[in-house]
Design a protein around this nucleic acid. Structure first.
Lengths: 133, 133
DNA sequence: CTCGTGCTTGACGCTTACGTAAACGTAAAG
DNA sequence: CTTTACGTTTACGTAAGCGTCAAGCACGAG
């Protein structure tokens, strides 16, 4: 076993912002909304691996078009404590809902991709016809 | 050949709203943004199959989290006239961009689904452990 | 001491995508 | 003729998701 103490890296707000290409304002806003809870050293924010991961999840959620409220419920599922039965059942229900949502999206995407392919074929054909004159 | 003239169905704003479960306000708003261009009979809006299809596309775009501006460029690609070369090249470029976007989303979705499956497994396990006591 | 750099907290502004009346038109039904 | 249903425009309201100052602290370099 490697019992070497990894110093558990931390990041400044600017470092995270640079890495994920968002503004400081954005990161602070997510904190405001309860999505991030960085440590404070004095007044300064210090971000731990957990925060970094969560920011990644948040941004992926955004790319998927979820609202920050929805993202909050999703992200919070990831590090939910075992908890009592009611909690677990609720969580499982949330997962079902989310999955349905995501599967709808996936289907929408596939349909759109197919149709784009058709439009593209049409374009290519038109272009070819235009150039062979 | 069936040369029966199909009367080319039309819809009222309320009918479309009911069918797609949106409000009248929403449909009018889309018109304001140039996404729909219903016929006018007097002051009243009359929607043709084309409008109906476009509304479907718009709403699918919304489910995918696109902004109305993005949706406009997408939907307009569907019924673009052949046009001149520059137009076609531009269109093909747009398609490439959109496809990249959609494929990113698809990947995001698959990752999220996998992770949700993990969380779910954890939940099921916790639940089982809890109940077998 | 001063400067620059990086961080902090307000607080107001802006865009998007509608909601929500208000006030009015029209046409069929009672 | 009045009610009812269905439509219209105009316009202000709002929630989300930040952008954009302003003003200030903290700290190391020069």
């Amino acid at each position: 076993m490697h019992n070497i103490r990894v110093p558990a890296q931390t990041w400044s707000i600017a470092e995270l912002a640079a890495e994920y290409d968002v503004t400081l304002r954005t990161i602070r806003f997510y904190e405001d909304r309860g999505l991030l809870t960085p440590e404070r050293r004095g007044t300064v924010r210090v971000y731990h691996p957990r925060d970094r991961v969560r920011l990644g999840l948040i941004l992926r959620g955004k790319r998927l078009g979820f609202s920050l409220d929805e993202i909050a419920t999703i992200v919070d599922m990831y590090d939910a404590e075992p908890g009592e039965e009611g909690q677990l059942v609720y969580l499982l229900d949330q997962i079902t809902t989310r999955r349905a949502d995501l599967e709808q999206r996936r289907q929408d995407i596939e349909e759109t991709l197919h149709e784009l392919a058709e439009v593209e074929a049409r374009c290519q054909a038109d272009l070819k016809a235009l150039r062979s004159r």
